[in-house]
Write a protein that binds this DNA or RNA. Structure first.
Lengths: 122, 122
DNA sequence: CGATTGCTTAGCCATTGCGCTAACTATTCA
DNA sequence: TGAATAGTTAGCGCAATGGCTAAGCAATCG
């Protein structure tokens, strides 16, 4: 349940960069070599490689080398961790919304009694 | 469409830290003051405040000060951006899986032509 | 009133992140 | 074999991150 926590650090970190998200997006369309992936970006290849490594280190992609060409593929399952986190988070505040509704009802009852001004905005 | 991109940088960045995720988790159970939120952590308050500011700057929480107490609340809608990104990504590789299946079928056809070492005849 | 509480500001410091160039290795091509 | 191709390694520089202490301030308490 909470074991994913440490993985989430790296996964979210990896997703926090537009270059890396673009790579994932491209790989969504199918496997590609380093050169193909790098081509749309203006940065130097070694810089780009760091992004690839980070994605691989965090399990978001897998790579394999054939001859002098390294081919990257998306590791789809990895994003499930993000999905799980989101679900868990949502479950929390949905449960809480239920409780909140109870308070709202209570507040409405109060309003009946007091009737008047509440707080001055600002 | 892609306008969310810049926001995603910050949002994913904010989520890439366990302290901040824990804060969101706690706020999922309802609003809380800075002090209440900070209590489970061993770090100094100013350090903790940086996390709060980062969460607020990226729109994941909202805060309001009453007297000397600042109360934080979850900004649930903000996580929708993450959800949207995930959906878009998934849509991409699901569409691609369809195309992949076509290739697989094509490959099976090829096998028929080339060698009969498969289950060509059941 | 003065003391305490609950942040807040201001800085310092070590580490990490993300870009670069230069030079190197390992295929593959002519 | 020699030249081009596709990555790779090494190291540099600067900005951002995430922690700290010390000191400040406004609200509340005794």
């Amino acid at each position: 349940m909470e074991h994913y926590s440490s993985q989430l650090n790296g996964i979210f970190q990896a997703l926090a960069d537009p270059t890396r998200r673009a790579v994932l997006r491209q790989l969504g369309r199918g496997p590609a070599s380093i050169g193909e992936l790098a081509q749309p970006f203006e940065m130097a290849l070694p810089s780009f490689m760091k992004h690839i490594h980070l994605l691989e280190d965090n399990g978001l992609i897998r790579t394999r080398k054939h001859g002098r060409v390294r081919t990257c593929t998306l590791e789809k399952a990895r994003l499930a961790a993000v999905d799980d986190w989101l679900s868990e988070q949502r479950a929390l505040w949905e449960a809480r919304t239920d409780r909140l509704e109870q308070f709202v009802i209570a507040d409405l009852d109060k309003d009946k009694d007091m009737d008047g001004n509440k707080e001055t905005s600002k």
